[in-house]
């Protein structure tokens, strides 16, 4: 075999190998989705998907088991919304500081700390929440207990802040210098340039960062399980207890009779979570692509 032929085959093989590796994740996502559908499927026929629209989540009952995921959806939504309310302003301001204002030395100092924050295991954050944040929330609002949606949201924002800072900073940094220079040349001050030119130009990237942050927060389990009190109430009050979708799966999957209606209901929650995070990711990618910010 000639040398060039050998090279050609090696090339082909390597290409196949790499393509196989790259498609593994696609395959895994598809398989997980199929698996969830298979486990959850029978619920659609008996007792029927309408049961998921019940107003209450009472999976263990001598009266009637009820599998309304409304309270769980609202619990996840409330915690996520509160977390974003805290996270977005802080993260964007920090990103602006790091990208536009900080001296190189400060940047070198700040960035590793933000990355360390991202790498704290959520169970550890949960402990921190239970022993520090919950008593703080309790004392601040004069409550009888600190196990509230707000407590969970504060912990989640600690997790989302690093994600949103890093991605927003990327977006800010990728704003072309020509724009900033033009603004400065027209006599705008540094701050005016940041808030009137750079920030608006980076906005699509920041929006995408927030959406990915939401995806991270809505799927988080351990910390919210530990501090939100897990009462399945349909509520919009930050100081009430909530039960999130993730916490429900984590708390109940361990002892649920295999194949039971309750078991299938838990898988439906899983499917809904997957669809939500999937949608968030797709929209975030679209936004990035549309504004040419995809790397």
């Amino acid at each position: 075999m000639s040398r060039s032929r050998k090279l050609f085959i090696t090339d082909k093989l390597m290409r196949l190998l790499l393509m196989g590796a790259a498609s593994t994740s696609v395959l895994v996502v598809c398989l997980i989705f199929l698996f969830l559908l298979k486990e959850a499927g029978p619920f659609a026929f008996n007792p029927g998907l309408g049961k998921l629209l019940d107003s209450q989540w009472i999976p263990v009952s001598f009266q009637q088991e009820r599998f309304g995921i409304g309270p769980l959806l609202s619990g996840s939504a409330l915690v996520t919304a509160l977390a974003m309310l805290v996270t977005v302003p802080i993260s964007v301001l920090v990103a602006i500081y790091i990208a536009e204002i900080a001296r190189p030395g400060e940047r070198e100092f700040l960035k590793p700390f933000i990355e360390i924050l991202a790498s704290i295991p959520s169970v550890v954050l949960g402990f921190f929440g239970l022993l520090v944040v919950a008593p703080l929330v309790k004392a601040t609002f004069g409550l009888s207990t600190g196990l509230t949606a707000l407590t969970g949201a504060l912990l989640l924002s600690l997790m989302a802040i690093p994600t949103i800072i890093s991605l927003s900073e990327d977006a800010l940094v990728s704003v072309p210098y020509s724009l900033k220079n033009a603004s400065l040349a027209l006599g705008a001050s540094h701050l005016q340039t940041i808030f009137r030119v750079t920030l608006p130009a980076a906005l699509p990237g920041i929006v995408a960062a927030v959406m990915l942050g939401i995806g991270r927060v809505i799927g988080e389990t351990m910390a919210v399980l530990m501090v939100t009190g897990n009462a399945a109430i349909l509520t919009a009050s930050p100081l009430s207890s909530v039960r999130t979708m993730t916490a429900t799966i984590a708390a109940e999957m361990g002892e649920v009779p295999f194949g039971s209606v309750h078991y299938q209901a838990l898988f439906w929650i899983g499917i809904i979570l997957l669809v939500i995070t999937f949608a968030l990711n797709i929209v975030a990618q679209r936004v990035l692509k549309k504004y040419g910010m995809m790397k």
Binding site: I58, Q63, L147, G229, A231, A251
Partner: peptide, 29 residues
């Protein structure tokens, strides 16, 4: 306790007389 706990079901059966727990009960792990 969480609804996955045997104690939860015992309490429900013998103290709550098989009625449902209030939904404002906080379920701890």
């Amino acid at each position: 306790r969480e609804s996955s706990s045997g104690t939860f079901v015992f309490f429900q059966e013998h103290v709550l007389n098989k009625e449902d727990f209030s939904n404002s009960a906080r379920l701890l792990a």
